[in-house]
């Protein structure tokens, strides 16, 4: 089973973790200044060394993926929306079947190595990323500066080139009206926290991404440790808020079960509405209030209600209107499995 459908450590609050390393190849300009033959050199070299890296990794040229497949990768958080739209003929991804390793080629930097896990798994992910990075550095010369460390196109990544992120589900902090204060507290600690879906005014589905800002003048170990500490604090606060909510007894049960009722009985439903309802249904399941679901089903609901993943599951490209109908059908399917 792929990592994003699995249940991980503390995944009632920490949905998933990601470690990302940005790297460039010595002697070749960064992607934005690359000539076609330079992009091609990077592309060919990476394609050539894939079997030497191991981990069941495969090289896939982005131009061989259709729009739907690219969007599905974005929905699974494996590549960025900008990269999915890339027209560069030498853009590629290196990915394994489990999809817990995804290396993008010729995005902003030549190489973006990413590893993923469900739940809170920062040390293990960090070790895996370092292991792959060490294999890569035997095969390709990295652009490294004795003062500035690993050089990246954007100065916000320079030094370690490391961004560690956790994706958290914070419905109780939201319901209890504490989320804004909480967000600014985390920002003050030198971390960035932002809603993953929706706009700045409302984080749809109460899902927030927390990641490190500082990448230079700090060791990889410290970055990981800081993120872990923050995650544990977040976990603690959200759990406290959840505990407070459960004291409300029937009021909370009523709210969560009503949302479950709409989710499971709707005949057509938009992506946004599904996201909001799934958030509360997940909360209800995690608190043991809603007993009709389990963690895998929640993960499936979260994935297959997204447009491209839904279309791929149904097996054809759907218009927005068709999506709303099929989304309601797929939700019923998952619930009755």
């Amino acid at each position: 089973m792929n990592w994003y459908l699995q249940n991980g450590k503390d995944s009632d609050v920490i949905i998933s973790s990601r470690v990302r390393l940005s790297r460039n190849i010595e002697g070749i300009p960064f992607v934005s200044k690359c000539k076609t033959e330079e992009l091609k050199t990077v592309y060919k070299k990476m394609k050539e060394i894939v079997p030497l890296i191991g981990y069941g990794l495969k090289f896939i040229s982005l131009k061989d993926l259709n729009d739907l497949n690219r969007e599905a990768l974005v929905e699974k958080n494996l590549i960025s929306a900008e990269f999915a739209k890339s027209k560069n003929p030498f853009s590629a991804i290196i990915i394994n079947d489990e999809e817990n390793i995804c290396i993008t080629i010729n995005e902003e930097d030549h190489i973006k190595l990413q590893v993923f896990s469900s739940g809170l798994e920062l040390e293990n992910l960090m070790n895996l990323a370092m292991e792959i990075d060490q294999k890569l550095e035997e095969l390709i010369p990295y652009s490294f500066h004795k003062k500035y460390g690993y050089l990246t196109a954007c100065p916000t990544n320079v030094g370690t080139g490391l961004k560690v992120s956790v994706f958290t589900h914070l419905p109780a902090l939201t319901i209890t009206g504490n989320i804004r204060r909480f967000l600014s507290a985390i920002n003050n600690l030198g971390m960035s926290i932002k809603g993953v879906y929706g706009d700045s005014s409302k984080a749809e589905g109460d899902i927030y991404q927390i990641s490190n800002n500082q990448t230079i003048g700090i060791t990889e170990k410290e970055i990981t440790k800081n993120l872990k500490l923050i995650s544990q604090k977040v976990l603690e606060q959200e759990k406290m808020a959840r505990k407070y909510l459960t004291k409300k007894g029937i009021d909370l049960e009523d709210k969560l079960y009503r949302d479950f009722g709409v989710l499971s009985n709707a005949k057509k439903i938009s992506e946004e509405e599904a996201r909001e309802l799934i958030s509360n249904v997940k909360l209800g399941t995690d608190l043991g209030i809603i007993s009709e679901l389990n963690d895998t089903k929640i993960s499936e609901l979260m994935l297959y209600t997204k447009p491209a993943s839904l279309s791929l599951r149904v097996g054809k490209k759907l218009s927005v209107y068709e999506q709303e109908i099929e989304r309601a059908n797929v939700i019923k399917q998952i619930l009755s499995e």
Binding site: Q134, K147, P155, V158, G159, T215, I216
Partner: peptide
């Protein structure tokens, strides 16, 4: 970098590999 990160000196790890430079055709 001092403004963005508070410092401008890398203290993390560095590459140990001695991979050959790529030839751009």
């Amino acid at each position: 970098l001092k403004n963005l990160h508070g410092t401008s000196k890398h203290i993390g790890r560095g590459p140990k590999g001695k991979a050959e430079k790529l030839n751009v055709e």
